[in-house]
Amino acid sequence: MEVDTAKIDSIIEKYNRDRSYMLAMFQDVQRLYRYLPKEAISYICKQLDIPFSKGYEMATFYKALSLKPRGRHTIHVCLGTACHLRGGPNILETFERELHIKTGETTEDGRFSIETVNCLGACALAPLVRVDEHDFGKTTQAVVKKIINEFTDGVKS
């Protein structure tokens, strides 16, 4: 995959080429491509004079970073304690069943990816689902179908 080095350069400059912000740079790149392309890791490492292996190590350590392309919408099902107790695992299963994919996978049409997250900090509204930047509290199995429809029909882009 070819990456836009001009865009990546501007991300690197935004953090004053400071190596301690490599994670933040990766996160910004991921926002561009919805994942972190190998070429981008390699490019950033070269620019910062850091071994590629260190960049790869970081990219695989942090759960927020994905080395695989993600769908247009990422469904984060919260499995924090409160969500676990109030049926989060069932919500996750329902998403998997409805979309015919497992956690960590992307639907064939590239529309959805499912991921889990260990607490989004809105425990009072458990079980919680976050799709892109929209939060859905007190999710039920019926709401799962509604969410999928809402994003499929382009109500939310």
């Binding site: 292996s53 960049g55 790869y56 695989t60």
Partner: peptide, 20 residues
């Protein structure tokens, strides 16, 4: 002095490898 190797992943899935 070449840093070809690294750890990838974390927890039980952690392993020693080369990038990708």
């Amino acid at each position: 002095g070449v840093s070809a190797l690294c750890m990838s992943g974390k927890g039980p899935a952690k392993k020693v490898t080369t990038p990708f």
